[in-house]
Design a protein around this nucleic acid. Structure first.
Lengths: 242, 242
DNA sequence: AAGAAACAAATAATGGATTATCTCTTGCAT
DNA sequence: ATGCAAGAGATAATCCATTATTTGTTTCTT
């Protein structure tokens, strides 16, 4: 990580650290469950511990991190239960947002979808390679589709859910990726959305979201079958076995 | 506010301050848009500025407060646009949560609804009086109804939306309250929910939520008709007129 | 060998001082 | 009377030292 002094910015130091740590969490450099040591982060970013604590408290408010008194901070952990919950909630809420977008969206919105889909389809790095560029294009694609919901609060909620999904995707990065026609899934979603067919669009979105979960669950099962050796190799195992 | 040293607790000081400020925001003592002066809060709570800054950063992560670099923190502001958005989002998302609860809920859940409804119906302080006890009982009532959704994330999202609604309710506290049969609205919601009639229950919930908005909007219109004199009397006017 | 206790090292949490910036007030120019 | 600039006061943001607590290691006991 670049130290803060390398970055020309008008924000406070704590906002800079907040953004950097947030990016590191979403990007997988900071793993779910990983302890966030204030003094280490302060040294890395060249700031004092208070600045880091402020940033981590803000991430705690966003639930990307957890604060435990006297123990410190850690990246919020993953679990299979939470993944199932996330998928169900995403399908429901993003389905609603998509319906709203289809109802409210205009031509500009449609053109943004087409453009985002074009970018996604032409960005290398689709799973299992999974580059940062592809993840960003994928995120943007989904955000654009929901962007005409007309609801700032819905946008914030779906953004937060999408962030969580990204963390799960990052976590499964090191696992084998079953074959899957992502491009067809995306195209179907775009097609239904541009056709203003809410039922079909929501069905496509739901299937897409649930397929991602299935992919991760399949990977977890495969990982468990490989035994402890591989689990150790992939770092701290974030998924509860209870 | 009690100073921190008066409170016997195992939490960190910053968590104690976070809770106190959060309660003050939700309770209306800290008004929407109000500046949160770090040194004043530190003096009130008998802690250092760093502790307060940590607490305020966490509230910022939760969007109950906003941080503006070099300017400081303020309670998140209200607007008519946001109120409309909040109501639409609540109706949609709580409707989904209610459907899930009706699908998953058991006898224990039903008994909790009946109990919470009983408490609400027998707690004095219904609008326009609007006591803390009534607000708490009302909050609990709604939370219990959704509690069997089986989704921790849905619970968190609806809790956050409910908090926002409470701030809007608090803000409208000083305004006249049109007549409304709240008891009937609540009873209808309980009746439909216990009957496991999802359509009717969601319809009742939506109507209830939207009626609250209508109440607030009516109050705003009445307040505007009263002119600037009364606006000054009720303190800082939080609603944008743009 | 396993468990408990003692000790050392690392880390969390906080207070208070310092510096930078913003806000408010006063004085001057038009 | 109005607007702008300068100065004072208030506040935001950060640093660093200190204290308390947790974690890890070593030693002792059974």
């Amino acid at each position: 990580m670049a130290t803060v002094t390398d970055v020309a910015d008008k924000s406070t130091l704590s906002e800079i650290v907040y953004s950097a740590v947030r990016t590191a969490i979403l990007g997988g450099q900071l793993r779910p469950g990983q302890r966030l040591k204030v003094s280490d982060l302060a040294a890395e970013h060249g700031v004092s511990v208070n600045v880091v604590r402020e940033a981590l408290n803000r991430l705690t408010g966003e639930q990307l991190a957890r604060a435990e008194p006297k123990i410190g901070f850690a990246v919020t952990n993953l679990s299979l239960e939470d993944l199932a919950d996330l998928v169900a909630v995403r399908a429901a809420i993003e389905g609603t947002a998509l319906r709203w977008a289809i109802r409210h969206g205009d031509m500009a919105w449609e053109s943004q979808i087409v453009a985002a889909h074009y970018r996604l389809a032409n960005t290398p790095g689709e799973p299992p390679a999974l580059t940062n560029d592809w993840i960003r294009a994928h995120s943007d694609f989904h955000a654009q589709i929901l962007s005409a919901s007309g609801s700032p609060r819905m946008r914030e909620i779906t953004r937060s859910l999408s962030d969580s999904a990204e963390i799960y995707r990052r976590w499964s990065l090191s696992l084998a990726e079953p074959r899957r026609d992502l491009a067809r899934e995306h195209a179907e979603l775009v097609d239904a959305t541009l056709a203003r067919d809410a039922e079909r669009a929501v069905s496509a979105l739901t299937a897409h979201i649930e397929q991602t979960r299935n992919t991760i669950l399949t990977n977890v099962a495969a990982d468990a079958a490989n035994g402890d050796g591989q689990a150790h190799k992939t770092g701290q195992r974030p998924v509860s076995r209870s």
